[in-house]
């Protein structure tokens, strides 16, 4: 099994005719993702390769039965694009876009509380169930289908790094999710941990966090209370200076909170196996997951 997306997922791409949208749609199709529609206002009726393009998400959903949106719309229009897919009733919306204003995302998040759509991201690499469905910009080839490990991360390329190390050790993944590097995002660590915990095929979890905010601490409290599966954790930003935004809008130590030290301490207290040397991440996973792989 897997969480959130699988071989039955029918993907529509918002911003499919843009440079990024085109490139990554082709990558997803090549991976085997069932891309059924694209949306670019004003280009309805055209085709991107074999994919029909619609003016609105509503029409794309109505005519193709799409249930998942992958969003490549530029930051100034991205909140609008997310809300459009929410109103069209898609089950999962994956926002790749980086640089959406925080206030826009705060409004979106409060709106989402009353909707059934799950938002992943923004500012994220997306989600992949290896061998079944890739909704995002991650290189598909580094993944290994069949589980049993679920991966959740705030980062993009850092996620590729840990997944690559898992695969090189022969450890497959059920689903890998990048929840994004922005301060306000849709799906959070706890949502993913709960889903992995409930998924019988996921037998261990990798959690990758970074400085800023308290999402990791909250997640660790959840792990301690609810998760019996083994968890390997990593936190980026031990050397990050306070008060500086480290690339991701959400990666900032402010007023002494959000430090890597506090987050790794929370992980240890929750029984998470903490990786201190990223170069040896794969080895730690082999050791921690040996009873379940």
């Amino acid at each position: 099994m897997s969480i959130f997306v699988n071989k039955n997922t029918r993907v529509l791409v918002q911003g499919i005719t843009g440079k990024e949208g085109q490139f990554h749609t082709r990558q997803c199709v090549a991976y085997g993702t069932n891309v059924v529609a694209g949306v670019t206002p004003g280009k309805g009726g055209q085709k991107m390769d074999e994919v029909p393009v619609f003016n609105t998400v509503f029409e794309a959903v109505r005519d193709t039965g799409a249930n998942c949106a992958m969003i490549f719309v530029p930051p100034a229009f991205a909140a609008d694009a997310i809300l459009e897919s929410v109103d069209a009733g898609v089950e999962v919306a994956v926002a790749i876009t980086e640089g959406i204003p925080v206030l826009d995302m705060m409004r979106v998040k409060n709106y989402l509380a009353r909707a059934k759509t799950r938002l992943i991201g923004p500012n994220c690499p997306g989600i992949i169930t290896p061998g079944e469905c890739k909704v995002g910009i991650m290189p598909g080839v580094i993944h290994k289908p069949g589980g049993p490990i679920g991966v959740v991360s705030r980062s993009g390329t850092l996620t590729y790094e840990v997944v690559h190390q898992l695969t090189r050790k022969g450890i497959g993944q059920t689903t890998c999710i990048g929840i994004g590097g922005d301060p306000v995002n849709g799906t959070n660590f706890i949502d993913c941990l709960a889903a992995f915990n409930a998924d019988p095929e996921t037998r261990g979890i990798v959690m990758v966090g970074e400085i800023g905010g308290s999402a990791e601490e909250d997640a660790c409290a959840y792990i301690k209370a609810n998760v019996k599966k083994p968890v390997v954790g990593f936190i980026a930003g031990v050397t990050a200076p306070p008060g500086r935004r480290m690339g991701h809008a959400g990666a900032i130590i402010s007023g002494g909170s959000g430090t890597a030290a506090a987050k790794t301490a929370a992980m240890r207290a929750a029984g998470v196996a903490v990786c201190e040397d990223l170069g040896m991440f794969g080895e730690l996973c082999v050791e921690t997951f040996k009873a379940v792989i």
């Binding site: 590729y160 980026a236 480290m246």
Partner: peptide, 24 residues
């Protein structure tokens, strides 16, 4: 480095290796 998370992790690796990062 490409990507903020990996860039932070790379700085951390440099520090762990006994050196100090000059930048992010």
């Amino acid at each position: 480095v490409n990507g903020a998370g990996l860039a932070m992790a790379t700085m951390d690796i440099i520090k762990r290796a006994g050196a100090e990062p000059a930048n992010f």
